[in-house]
């Protein structure tokens, strides 16, 4: 990072003095991520506290027969969610490649499509969009199977937790698309590193939250 911000220093006419030599935005985004830990901590706590407390089904991991005799299968679809988890994980790789491409633009080893920030930004945004597509599919199929946000405590806490995460992904996709738009319009280079970096940090954080959700909600009974 230091090399990059030093580069940014030369590029800007009047970069302001800062105490640490770091960029304000980066400190702010880390403080924001710290704060988000508490938000998702609360959401995940609530999900876990309410696990197994639903009065009626459908349930995440167990089948349920309603008083009317209707059978509901365990509702979580592990294969589909594993696929979407993989996609989100890959998006993080695309993101670091995008950042490296912006930071090292024009340097040897960053030629061609492999060194193109446009390619990797687009790939990251696309992977994010695919993840959202999986989530939309998951939500609609749950609703078809009889689970809405109002059905029971599981539905309430599940849709809220994963919905909040999905909203974060959606914001990230919009952020990535704005960067891509700027990249196409005028090209992103080393002096834009900080602006791509803060987006990347946000994006990876959203990925990290999913790592926790995938295990706590989907895999552990």
């Amino acid at each position: 990072m230091t090399t990059a911000s030093a580069g940014a220093h030369e590029a800007h006419e009047h970069t302001h003095y800062t105490t640490t030599g770091l960029d304000n935005k980066k400190i702010a985004i880390w403080a924001f991520i710290g704060s988000e830990c508490m938000l998702f901590g609360s959401l995940i706590s609530t999900y876990l506290v309410y696990k197994g407390k639903s009065v009626v089904g459908p349930f995440p991991h167990d089948a349920w027969t309603s008083p009317a005799g209707q059978l509901f299968k365990p509702i979580l679809n592990i294969p589909v969610t594993s696929a979407s988890t993989f996609v989100l994980l890959m998006s993080s790789l695309f993101m670091v490649l995008a950042l490296a491409a912006v930071e090292n633009k024009g340097k040897p080893g960053y030629e061609g499509w492999q060194g193109s920030s446009k390619v990797w930004l687009a790939a990251t945004a696309l992977a994010g969009a695919v993840f959202l597509g999986f989530q939309a599919y998951e939500f609609t199929s749950f609703v078809h199977e009889g689970l809405t946000i109002r059905t029971n405590l599981f539905g309430t806490s599940f849709f809220t937790l994963t919905g909040f995460h999905g909203t974060h992904v959606a914001v990230g996709v919009l952020w990535l698309l704005s960067l891509l738009f700027i990249d196409i319009k005028r090209g992103l280079g080393p002096r834009d590193t900080i602006n791509v970096d803060i987006c990347a940090l946000y994006w990876h954080f959203v990925d990290v939250v999913w790592i926790a959700i995938f295990t706590l909600v989907y895999l552990i009974k």
């Binding site: 990072m1 640490t20 770091l22 980066k26 400190i27 880390w30 403080a31 991520i33 710290g34 704060s35 830990c37 508490m38 993080s92 790789l93 993101m95 670091v96 990347a200 940090l201 990876h204 954080f205 990925d207 990290v208 790592i211």
Partner: peptide, 23 residues
């Protein structure tokens, strides 16, 4: 992910404090 992708391992110590404390 936090150490490598978010390059916390390589970055200024202040970022580590800002993240690990709240975590």
């Amino acid at each position: 992910v936090v150490m490598y992708y978010m390059h916390l391992k390589y970055d200024h110590a202040i970022f580590r404090k800002l993240f690990v404390g709240p975590l």
